Amino acid sequence: MTGRSPQPDRDVDALLRRRLAAAGLDGVASLRPVEGGVAAVARIAELSDGSRVFVKTLAEAPGDDLFPVEAEGLAALRDLGGVATPEVLLVTPEILVLRALRPRPDTPGFWERLGHAVAALHTTTVHDRFGWHRDGWLGRKRQYNEWHTDGHEFYARCRILRWLDEPQVAAAFDHAERRALERLCERLPEIVPAVPASLTHGDLWTSNIIAGVDGEPVLVDPAVSYNWPETDLSMLWCTHRPPESARFFDAYVEAARPEPGWRERLPVLYLRQLLCLIAHDYPDRSPAERVREVIAPFHRRA
């Protein structure tokens, strides 16, 4: 989750220059803003030797491990799942510097190749437990990844109920709505098949899909864990995406063979992201309204 900062651009640029210099990366000739996301600020930095790098920071990082965890997630996707990720040039608790890449070309061929890459990620990293060896981050909020052998329990505790005590989420829903979310969690075994966990990107929306110098798909900004593969599909399916992305789903289904009914399950799996947006004080009410649509069948009738 990267994006524009509420701070004036000059203040952000000055902060980035100071942090780059403190990390030993001098000679920044210019900084160009990068759009997309809600949590961090990002720039393309042109260095004095003419090379370009991607730099990301937060004015006040929520934890010293934010960027190290992100760098580790990029390495896991690449080394365990065979997915292309950018080279990490520098990582500190305050800043992340990656090799600069290219904007995503929205062609059917690009999205088809991405579908095959994500299918390979999911089908070659099957795991006997859900979670990760450490907690991570989703935006500025902790992603809890404690190990579970039961995927339904993991998703209920660590991906849905985990958000209910966040102040913005608590303010958005009344008691009846919270109980409906809890009932949905109780019925997850009826909704989601008991499939094994696989390594997942965890935040697979369009802004986190870019291109390498060869034009091939590259993934950035992960929130990795071993989880149901369909959680990655839900991020793309339920967010705005270009029409060419239909080829992603065609290629993925052909290669990964998800359980029947996968499309109908995706809005339930997307609840994690909607609750996360609310917890980050998203500026409109649409995430809360979308949550209410999903949980409507789980209200207890008198």
Results as ranks from 00 to 15, higher is better:
Ala22Val: 10
Ala22Thr: 12
Ala22Cys: 06
Ala23His: 07
Ala23Phe: 07
Gly24Glu: 12
Gly24Tyr: 11
Gly24Trp: 08
Leu25Pro: 09
Leu25Ala: 04
Leu25Cys: 06
Asp26Lys: 14
Asp26Gly: 14
Gly27Ser: 12
Ala29Gly: 09
Ser30Ile: 01
Leu31Arg: 01
Leu31Tyr: 02
Arg32Val: 12
Pro33Lys: 03
Val34Met: 14
Gly36Ile: 04
Gly37Met: 00
Gly37Asn: 03
Ala39Trp: 05
Ala39Tyr: 08
Ala40Trp: 01
Ala40Val: 00
Ala42His: 02
Arg43Pro: 03
Ile44Asn: 01
Ile44Lys: 00
Ala45Asn: 14
Ala45Cys: 14
Glu46Arg: 13
Glu46Ala: 14
Leu47Lys: 05
Leu47Trp: 08
Ser48Thr: 15
Asp49Cys: 09
Gly50Phe: 09
Gly50Met: 10
Gly50His: 07
Gly50Trp: 07
Ser51Ala: 15
Val55Arg: 04
Thr57Cys: 15
Leu58Asp: 13
Glu60Gln: 15
Glu60Ser: 12
Glu60Cys: 04
Ala61Glu: 08
Pro62Phe: 10
Gly63Thr: 02
Gly63Met: 05
Gly63Leu: 04
Asp64Arg: 14
Asp64Phe: 04
Asp65Glu: 06
Phe67Gly: 06
Phe67Trp: 06
Val69Cys: 15
Glu70Lys: 02
Ala71Arg: 02
Glu72Asp: 13
Glu72Phe: 00
Glu72Ile: 02
Gly73Arg: 03
Gly73Phe: 00
Leu74Tyr: 01
Leu74Val: 03
Ala75Arg: 14
Ala75Asn: 06
Ala76Val: 06
Leu77Cys: 08
Arg78Asp: 02
Gly81Ser: 06
Gly81Phe: 03
Gly81Ala: 13
Ala84Phe: 02
Ala84Trp: 00
Thr85Phe: 05
Thr85Met: 08
Pro86Lys: 01
Pro86Arg: 03
Glu87Tyr: 04
Val88Pro: 07
Val88Glu: 06
Leu90Ser: 10
Leu90Gln: 14
Val91Gly: 07
Val91Ile: 09
Pro93Thr: 01
Glu94Thr: 14
Glu94Met: 09
Glu94His: 12
Glu94Lys: 11
Ile95Lys: 02
Leu96Phe: 06
Leu98Ile: 07
Leu98Met: 05
Leu98Phe: 05
Arg99Gln: 14
Ala100Ser: 14
Ala100Phe: 02
Leu101Glu: 10
Leu101Pro: 00
Leu101Phe: 00
Arg102Trp: 02
Pro103Cys: 00
Arg104Trp: 01
Arg104Thr: 08
Pro105Phe: 03
Asp106Gln: 04
Asp106Leu: 00
Thr107Trp: 07
Pro108Tyr: 02
Pro108Gln: 00
Pro108Asp: 02
Phe110His: 04
Trp111His: 14
Trp111Met: 08
Glu112Asn: 04
Arg113Lys: 09
Gly115Ser: 07
Gly115Tyr: 05
Gly115Met: 06
His116Lys: 11
His116Ser: 13
His116Arg: 15
Ala117Pro: 06
Val118Pro: 04
Val118Arg: 03
Val118Thr: 09
Ala119Lys: 05
Ala120Lys: 08
Ala120Thr: 13
Ala120Asn: 10
Ala120Pro: 01
Leu121Arg: 11
Leu121Tyr: 09
His122Lys: 05
Thr123Asp: 12
Thr124Pro: 03
Thr125Ser: 15
